[in-house]
């Protein structure tokens, strides 16, 4: 475990914590961007360059901007009078802590069916963007087409859902 991993992991977790805990919603969106950037760095640290840069492009470039737009359009940055947490926040917190405890226990008490002693560092896989492109156009061409269809329908659906209806405005 290198110091770089701990630094990036700490950055991501701190960003994620701030994204769900801060009072001002705009600050939450900015903290979310930090968490996404930390995750992209973790992908790069795992030798997944393509996924890391896709993460930066899609999440920081698109999703975070979309979230900021939604916050500003709904005036969500105003802190509500009766607190930022829902009435059943304790139940949610207990559920989340319990799930983390179960996941951490499972991770720490598993035996790995992996090469090397328990997932010890192996040589970086020699995967280039060309291999990914070939796989996308070969073995994974059907999922690629389905994702293209899904993105098109999501684009049209989001526009229709958010479209301003003139009749209801009056």
């Amino acid at each position: 475990m290198s110091i770089v991993f701990f630094a990036i992991a700490g950055l991501s977790v701190a960003g994620a914590l701030a994204a769900v805990a801060l009072k001002n919603t705009v600050h939450c969106a900015l903290a979310l961007t930090v968490a996404f950037a930390g995750l992209a760095l973790l992908f790069l640290e795992l030798d997944a360059q393509f996924a890391g840069f896709a993460q930066i492009l899609v999440y920081i470039g698109a999703v975070a901007i979309l979230v900021v737009f939604a916050i500003l359009l709904t005036r969500g940055s105003e802190t509500p009078k009766d607190g930022i947490y829902s009435t059943k926040w304790l139940l949610g917190l207990v559920t989340a802590s319990g799930i983390f405890a179960v996941l951490a226990w499972a991770v720490l008490h598993s035996t790995w069916a992996l090469p090397g002693p328990e997932g010890a560092p192996t040589a970086a896989p020699a995967v280039t963007v060309m291999d990914i492109g070939n796989a996308l156009m070969g073995r994974y061409v059907l999922p690629l087409e389905i994702v293209a269809l899904l993105l098109t329908s999501a684009l049209i659906g989001a526009v229709i859902v958010a479209m301003h209806e003139k009749e209801s405005a009056q």
């Binding site: 991501s12 977790v13 969500g76 829902s86 926040w89 559920t95 989340a96 799930i99 983390f100 996941l103």
Partner: peptide, 18 residues
């Protein structure tokens, strides 16, 4: 796992839909 738990806690405890 920690990031998942933080996200779950946020989704379950916050009032704002965003």
């Amino acid at each position: 796992a920690l990031l998942f738990a933080i996200g779950l806690a946020g989704a379950l405890t916050r009032r704002n839909a965003i």
